[in-house]
Each structure stands twice: as C-alpha cells, then as structure tokens.
Design a protein around this nucleic acid. Structure first.
Length: 264
DNA sequence: CGAGATGTTCGGCT
DNA sequence: AAGCCGAACATCTC
C-alpha cells in the first residue's frame, strides 16, 4: 500500500506513544524484515528508552528514542503501523511490538518486503541521512530533474518516475497520477520528451506529492475527486477527463494504466 | 487454482 | 561501464 503520503500517515499512528517509555520489546527475530539487524541488541536497547519523535522521508520512517537510538521502518508492499491495547496479543505478521504502559506500538507486514533499520549514536545513521531531496523541497529543481531524465534517455518515463534516487517516495499509483495529470504517455522515452512535457512532469510531481501529503498523509482523507487514483484503484477504470476506458500494460515492470486519448 | 499486488535488490545482459 | 530488464523475495486475495 504505502507510498509517500501513506507512509506519512502511518508514521503519525505511533504519535499516541510520544514521550512515553518502552517497557518491553517483542519481535520475530530471523524474519526477513530484520535482515542485517542485531535484533537482540535492538530489543535490549529500546527497552527503557522513551519514544521522543519521528519523521518520514520518501518511503522511510525514522523513530527516535532517548539515549540516541534510531529505529527506521520501511513498509515495503504490505506493511502497516498500528496502535493496539497494552495487553494486545501479536498475530502471525506482527513482527515488532513496542510495549508501553498504556498501549502497544505494532509493525505488521505479511509479505515482509518491508524492513527495519537500527542505529545507536549521536549522528544520523547513513540510511537516514543519505536520502535524496524530497520532490516537494526547493532542492528538487527543474534542472536537477531534467538532467536525470536526460541520463535515462532510453527509459520509459513511467519507469523513470519509479527511480527512488530521483523521485523519492513516488510509487506506482503516484507515477500514473503524475503522467495522467501531465498528459504524457507512460511509454514515452525520456529522451523524446519536450521541454514543455518535462516542465509539466516537474510541476505535477510536486503538486501531487504536496496535495497527497495534505489529504492522505494528514488523515487518510481522499485526494481531489477528479484525480486518476479513484478510477485507477477503485472504479472501473474510466479516464476522469473524457470517460474513455483506460489502457493497461506492464511498463517498467509495473502495472500501468493510462488514457490513450489525453496522454500522448 | 493461478495470477497479481501502492517495493526493493540482485544478477546478468547489452 | 552504465543502464536496463526480469526474477526473486513471502503471503494474501480475487
């Protein structure tokens, strides 16, 4: 499920436990989401620490704890964060449970494409510090984005939008949304895009990221009614602009839907 | 029962 | 040699 805005929404779920101490940690050691992590150390370190704050960047969340403890969570394809009762009994896919006196903070992920990061120390860990500039940030300039698309001249634009080093946080539905709003055929090669088209992608990418954060990211409310996402994911699949049946194909290894009339 | 799912990474090919 | 593609990862749902 989670792309940029969904990740921001899930991050805030754990706010219920802010400034409160972790009394116990329960986890499924050896599960894929903990690959590369010393789970014994993680559990021992978090126990007794207070949850002091969090932030989301791209599709990654970072939770901070007293004493210089950093916990990263990537939700992968099927991950979610929840808050449960203090005596909640973890299910099969509840791989990480942080107990507090009044509640349990839960990371659940059936498919386990998600992952947990862990770091102790004063300085930001590399997995958190080394993320590219957010699409909504001033550093995400038209020049920077154009240069990237030029380097990927032989790549379909849909595939380019999924490259996380260039469009951090953009996932499959956002990529389709950007191209639909910018009226560009997802199969178009980056090298063939006009300046005007590149400018449209830049503008729409920034706008869609921001509006998604302000709706889905805020309280999971719906983005504007006329967006493609409502047709793309939940309805029959008609272009919101002209009612034409959307096309479906695999582009960049992912299912892509677009309108053959208004996207060229 | 088989196919596909809002993601990332790796190995192999050009 | 960078860049591109498909497969793999693990599980559930339609």
């Amino acid at each position: 499920m989670p792309e940029l805005a969904e990740v921001e929404y899930y991050r805030k779920e754990w706010d219920a436990g802010l400034r409160k101490k972790i009394t116990a940690v329960e986890l499924h050691a050896g599960k894929r989401i903990f690959r590369g992590v010393d789970t014994k150390r993680l559990a021992a370190t978090l126990k007794g620490a207070a949850y002091t704050g969090s932030e989301a960047r791209a599709k990654l969340m970072c939770f901070r704890f007293s004493g210089g403890v950093w916990l990263g969570v990537h939700l992968g394809m099927s991950g979610e964060l929840r808050v449960e009762a203090k005596d909640f009994e973890p299910g099969r896919h509840d791989h990480l449970v942080l107990r507090q006196s009044a509640r349990s903070l839960v990371f659940s992920d059936p498919r386990q494409f998600g992952r947990v990061h862990f770091h102790e120390g004063r300085a930001e860990p590399e997995w958190w510090a080394k993320l590219p500039p957010a699409v909504t940030s001033p550093e995400f300039t038209l020049e920077r984005m154009s240069a990237f698309l030029k380097r990927r001249a032989r790549l379909a634009v849909k595939a380019a939008l999924l490259v996380q080093t260039a469009f951090p946080g953009v996932g499959n539905w956002m990529a389709d949304e950007i191209l639909w709003q910018a009226r560009i055929d997802p199969r178009a090669l980056c090298g063939k895009l006009s300046r005007k088209q590149i400018a449209a992608i830049w503008e729409k990418a920034r706008e869609i990221c921001q509006v998604s954060l302000d709706t889905i990211g805020k309280d999971y409310s719906d983005p504007p009614e006329d967006w493609l996402i409502h047709q793309r994911w939940t309805n029959k699949g008609l272009c919101p602009r002209d009612g034409l049946q959307l096309k479906t194909a695999t582009i960049g290894g992912r299912t892509t839907r677009w309108c053959a009339r208004c996207q060229r």
